[in-house]
Nucleic acid binder design. Structure first.
Lengths: 223, 223
DNA sequence: TAAGTAAGTAACTAGTTAGTTACTTTGTTT
DNA sequence: AAACAAAGTAACTAACTAGTTACTTACTTA
C-alpha cells in the first residue's frame, strides 16, 4: 500500500483533469483491469489501490465501497461501448452496409476489449445484479432507434419477414461474443492463434456468411 | 455444521452404493449446486457441507481440498453431458436428421441444466484452468468421431464445402448457449418468459433456421 | 502569507474461512 | 464379543480482507 508519493499536478499528462478527477480516473482504470480479471468477489481492494498507485483510503473517499466502485466500473465501460455504438447506427445510409459495418465494429470492439467481454461474463454469472443498475439508463434511449432501424431494413426486404428481430440480435451477439468469451477453450483444441488478425477476419467472415446467407435476403443464391 | 446424525446404511435409498459412495455422491451434488451458483471463490466449504448434510471434515476426507472437489464436480458434470452426447452421434442414420436431433438435444440439455451452463461460464472466466484438467480426456476420444461424421455430411453435399467445420461447431454452441448464459439480461428487455416451453421452441426453430438456411444445403428455397 | 479545505497516508479492527486436530460412533471380520 | 477399520463430529487456528480511525501533506483563495 504505497500510494503515489510525489504526484505533482501534471498538466501535460492530465490535460484538463483536476488532480482528483485524475485520481478517480486511475481508480476506474485499475478497477476495470482487476475486476475484469477476478470478478467482484475475487478482487482485493488493496490490489486495486496498488494498481492505481493510490492509497486504499482514497477508493473509499471517491467510491464509498468496493461494490459501488464495481458498479461505476461497469457504468464506465458500458458507456464507452454504447457511445461508440450509437454513432455507427446514426450514420444512416444503405441498411445493408450499416448492418455489415455494425457487426464488424462490434466484433472488433470485443476483440480489442477483453476486459469488457469479461466484465459482461461476470455480470451474467451475477444474474446481472449490478449491470441492471446501469444498463437500462443506457439502453432505453438507444433501443427504439435500433428497433426502428431494423424494422426499416425488414420492410425494405433486406431482412426476411419471418425473422424475430430480438432473436436476430441475440444471435449476432452470440456469434461474436462466444468466440472471445470461450477463447481459452477454443485455443485448447485449435492449432492456430485464435486472436491472430487473419483468424479474426475468418471468424467475422463466417459470422457474416451465416447472418447474410441465413437470415437476410442477400441477392441471388451464390454458392 | 450439523452432519447427518443417524445415517443408517439404507439399502432401499442407496441402491448398490455403499455408505461412503453415497456420501461422495451427495458431496458432488451439493458441490455442483453451490459451485454453479457462486463459483470456486464465492463458495464456502461449510455451505457445501450443510447442503450435502455431511460434516465438513468428510469433504476433506474424500476430496482432499476445495479445489480438488471443484475439479471433480467439473468432471462429474462434463461426463454426464458427454456420455449423453456420444449416444446421439452414434445412432447414425440420415446426417440431416442426426444433426437436427443433436442440436435439439444439446439445446434442451442446456435448458434443463442451468448448473452446467453456469459451471462452463465460471470456467471460461477461470481461463479453463480447472476444466483443462478433465476436458481433454473426455473430448479427445470423441473428437475424431464427430469430425468424421461432419466430413461425411460435407461430402454428401449437406454442408457447404466452404464452411469451416470448427466455426460451425462454435456457432451452434454460441447460438444455443448465449440464450441461457445471458438469460437474465434478455429477460430484462423481453416481456415473455425466456424459459417458457413455447419460447424455447421458438428459439430452437430460429437456431435451426439460421444453421440450415445459412450453412447447410437444405433443399429448395422455401421462404 | 495565513487559513481552510482537498488529497493522501499508515496502522488498526472486526469478521470471515480453508483446513486441522483430537476425538466418538458405527460397521465388519474373525 | 473383541479388535479393528471406516465414517463421522466439534472445536480450533492461522491467514486474510473490507472498511475505519486519526493523522499529515499539498493546494487554493482571500
Amino acid at each position: 500500500m504505497k500510494g503515489n508519493p510525489t504526484h505533482p499536478l501534471n498538466p501535460e499528462k492530465s490535460g484538463d483533469l483536476t488532480r482528483s478527477e485524475e485520481s478517480k480516473q486511475r481508480i476506474l482504470l485499475a478497477g476495470t483491469a482487476i475486476f475484469a480479471q477476478k470478478g467482484l468477489e475475487g478482487s482485493r481492494v488493496d490490489e486495486i489501490a496498488d494498481e492505481a498507485h493510490i492509497n486504499k483510503r482514497m477508493i473509499y473517499h471517491y467510491f464509498e465501497s468496493k461494490e459501488n466502485l464495481y458498479v461505476e466500473v461497469l457504468r464506465y465501460n458500458y458507456t464507452k461501448l454504447y457511445t461508440r455504438g450509437s454513432s455507427v447506427i446514426q450514420s444512416g445510409t444503405d441498411p445493408e452496409i450499416v448492418i455489415k459495418q455494425a457487426i464488424r465494429e462490434y466484433f472488433y470492439y470485443l476483440a480489442e476489449h477483453d476486459e469488457f467481454v469479461r466484465l459482461m461474463s461476470w455480470e451474467a454469472l451475477n444474474q446481472e445484479k449490478y449491470a441492471n443498475r446501469v444498463l437500462p439508463q443506457l439502453i432505453d434511449p438507444a433501443e427504439p432507434v435500433l428497433r426502428q432501424f431494423l424494422q426499416v431494413g425488414q420492410q425494405a426486404g433486406l431482412i426476411r419477414k419471418n425473422i424475430d428481430i430480438r432473436h436476430l440480435l441475440v444471435s449476432v451477439n452470440a456469434l461474436c461474443l462466444v468466440y472471445f468469451s470461450r477463447r481459452e477453450m477454443l485455443q485448447t483444441f485449435w492449432k492456430e492463434d485464435i486472436m491472430a488478425p487473419s483468424m479474426l477476419e475468418e471468424r467475422l467472415t463466417h459470422i457474416q456468411d451465416i447472418i447474410f446467407n441465413g437470415i437476410l435476403n442477400y441477392g441471388e443464391e451464390e454458392m
